[in-house]
């Protein structure tokens, strides 16, 4: 692997890690809200969350590109806040990945919360536990496996993301060129050996990660 590829690997890991943290911080309350929503409007929100699964990444990427552009309100705001444009920055690909991977984090969590029900939460309430206390003392430990699943799916999905990152990141070396784009570049340039080496490492890393996740889940279930 050449330096540029190592750089892409580093960028990918950085992007995936930060995205996963944000996904968990954002996805948990969202999943909780959806799981406890009584109204029929719920299905609309569920559909919105699930949209990135169906939408071609390039479509989502294109809309994000318009939203992040310095001409847009969001782009302006970001520019004023940070002094640098949002589009084609590392922050942009993180935001893009968060949106794109959101259903992969929200859905397993929502399902876990729904399955958990309110039996144990009522019991905790009657012992004087306040909402956040209940979340950390009951919900989190009882749905740990789903959190691991959600986090690793979010992480893996972010690592594998291509279309959006290419669109809003701009393939800038050392900033927004991630592994998937580096592989694409190698293929485009007929550097098949390098493309294969990178693909293989991505494949192996993903395989190891997912195996670990399922192993953890398996242990949890069989205990």
């Amino acid at each position: 692997m050449i330096d540029a590829d190592l750089m892409a690997l580093f960028t990918t890991l950085k992007m995936a890690t930060i995205s996963t943290i944000i996904l968990l911080l954002l996805g948990t309350p969202l999943a909780w809200w959806l799981a406890n929503m009584q109204s029929k409007v719920k299905v609309i929100f569920e559909a919105i969350v699930a949209l990135p699964i169906i939408l071609p990444p390039t479509v989502l990427g294109f809309y994000l590109l318009i939203a992040f552009a310095p001409q847009s309100t969001l782009g302006q705001l970001w520019l004023q806040l940070t002094g640098s444009p949002l589009a084609f920055s590392f922050s942009a690909i993180v935001i893009g990945s968060v949106l794109y991977s959101l259903p992969f984090v929200v859905q397993p969590l929502q399902r876990a919360f729904e399955q958990l029900g309110d039996h144990y939460l009522e019991a905790a309430t009657m012992l004087g536990a306040k909402p956040l206390d209940r979340f950390f003392s009951i919900v989190l430990p009882m749905t740990k496996a789903s959190f691991i699943t959600a986090a690793s799916l979010g992480f893996a999905h972010t690592v594998g993301e291509f279309g959006i990152v290419l669109m809003i990141g701009g393939n800038i070396p050392d900033q927004t060129r991630v592994l998937s784009i580096a592989i694409f570049d190698h293929v485009e340039a007929f550097e098949y050996a390098q493309a294969q080496a990178l693909s293989l490492s991505l494949l192996l890393a993903s395989f190891v990660l997912l195996t670990l996740v399922y192993l953890l889940n398996y242990k949890k279930v069989s205990r």
């Binding site: 144990y120 309430t125 009657m126 004087g128 009951i138």
Partner: peptide, 19 residues
């Protein structure tokens, strides 16, 4: 709120925390 009423409740199905 229930958690502030200082009232206890023993449920039909004990609802012990399994973890």
């Amino acid at each position: 709120k229930a958690e502030q009423r200082n009232i206890g409740l023993v449920f039909q199905n004990s609802r012990l925390f399994p973890h």
